[in-house]
Design a binder for these strands. Structure first.
Lengths: 293, 293
DNA sequence: CGAATTTACGCACGGCGTAATGATC
DNA sequence: GATCATTACGCCGTGCGTAAATTCG
């Protein structure tokens, strides 16, 4: 279970080919073959079928473990590297689309910022691997409740903003006249699922906690990270979506109806690598101070 | 960052000696020295001071990462091993002291059981590393809320019992006459902290959520796992402790006063390795069926 | 001076590449 | 028959142990 072998294994599984993986990793086919053989011998199980190359059930399991392991390994290295590294002059922020709004944008220093837009689930990864100095993620939760922490390596999360939620309806929608909506009333409706741009339906089902996570069927799934597209899809009637009220209210051609029950908010959190709690100066410190202050 | 090196590193740190670690691992002192040197060179940081041997700040950090990494590595191996292993005839259960009560004991098969008593925090580890086939942990939570999942590798948790909570007071205690107590009223009292036998005070502070986790000062800390000792300490007036009501009510020489606010229960959960969801037969299946059914 | 870590050095094994073999569509 | 994975085999480098040197209490 050498990490090198695991890395080779996940690459082979991802590319579904020994030769491709060899090229990607800078090995020969032979070496890759030996890696896989070593793993299979060690574990006493076949991990991949050949022709076509695909993970066996046991291989699927190993994939989950290997992914988490390699990520944690990178995280550890990044964390230790921070100890030695000189404080950097530039601030690299990873942020999910809806985590960027007036409050957070205002806190960005005027200069020397690299802002990388990522799907929400990738933001913690970027912070933990040291690709970003800070992260901004959004999600839904009960008021003043934290978002569910990602199960990647430890991260310090601080809430920096909470806004009410609203359902975005195309003008003329039967429910568009309502003063407020309850989530229960919408469980049977058709929804947009935009896990990378908006709020994943899974999260909705989780907080709804209804009958074994049922309901909230997907009308259309959008896999990009462009919020404007998401809004346009909602306006065009491709499905419902939940948004922070201020944003929802600003969409022309649509009506934003407040969500009144259950009591949920759109929450934005600042993610920082743990430890080194208060480096006194530098762009990271300035950014966090302006967000928290 | 080879796992072998990490394993050597944590051993050296734990034993505070290169030579001891070498003996423990079956290496020579020389090899251990080379391992540590390799790690320090790789990371570009000193990890240990010599004479005395103790982790530097960076080394402390690496210890946290390394522990989690090595645990996940063992977990992955154990998980994959389960795929190949024949279903076992004997059931090995790891349980925290307060997780063992009428309900859970009744579910144990009449024969072929190995029951290992462990501190609550060790139970998930035992399950995840395959040292136990199932785990029983206890803790406090809001009614029908799950316990906070341990951040070790994935585990399937099912609630199997919830009981009301009571404060155990020595007979003659000023509050012993009360019909019910509120946690707020007790935040300034002196408590027993028995994280391995009872409910850790940290958890109490966490669910209380009061002013930055203050209050609940420790009068006496008991580090064993013997519940009888914990009860005796409470009876002898060494501090307050929170217990499941049925247990608290059965203690001679003490009074059990129900906890009325906040609404909390003592919850017991069954922990199982994930995946292989429903193996149809065998002692594990029987045990889980009797617990859930 | 003694205990314990570091460095020097040699050898053995592991792991990669080249090249030949084998399997599968 | 072509493509792709496996096996055979030789070489290089890593990593261990033995043993000498060094450091620190």
């Amino acid at each position: 279970m050498d990490p090198h072998l695991l890395r080779t294994y996940v690459t082979v599984a991802r590319l579904a080919s020994f030769s491709e993986a060899a090229r990607a990793l800078g090995y020969t086919q032979s070496a890759v073959s030996q890696h896989i053989a070593a793993l299979e011998t060690d574990l006493g199980l076949p991990l991949l079928t050949r022709r076509p190359v695909a993970p066996t059930p046991a291989g699927e399991r190993l994939l989950e473990h290997a992914g988490a392991l390699l990520l944690r390994l990178d995280a550890a290295r990044a964390d230790l590297d921070r100890f030695a590294a000189a404080p950097r002059a530039t601030l690299r922020v990873a942020a999910s689309p809806l985590a960027l709004h007036a409050r957070t944008l205002a806190a960005l220093p005027a200069t020397g910022v690299t802002l990388r837009g990522l799907p929400p689930e990738q933001v913690p990864v970027a912070v933990v691997t040291g690709e970003a100095d800070a992260g901004l993620v959004d999600g839904i939760a009960a008021p003043s409740d934290p978002l569910p922490p990602p199960d990647v390596a430890p991260l310090a999360a601080t809430g920096v903003a909470e806004e009410p939620l609203a359902v975005l309806l195309p003008a003329g929608h039967p429910l568009a006249g309502r003063a407020g909506l309850r989530l229960d009333d919408l469980a049977d409706a058709r929804w947009l699922d935009a896990p990378d741009a908006g709020i994943p339906l899974d999260r909705l089902r989780a907080v709804h906690g209804g009958p074994a996570g049922g309901g909230f069927r997907t009308a259309l799934r959008y896999e990009g990270t462009d919020t404007r597209t998401l809004l346009a899809l909602a306006v065009a009637g491709h499905g419902l979506t939940l948004l922070p009220s201020p944003l929802a209210a600003s969409v022309p051609g649509a009506v934003a109806v407040p969500l009144v029950a259950p009591r949920l908010v759109h929450r934005t959190e600042l993610l920082l690598p743990p430890g080194v709690p208060a480096e006194p100066t530098g762009p990271v410190a300035e950014f966090t101070r302006r967000l928290r202050g």
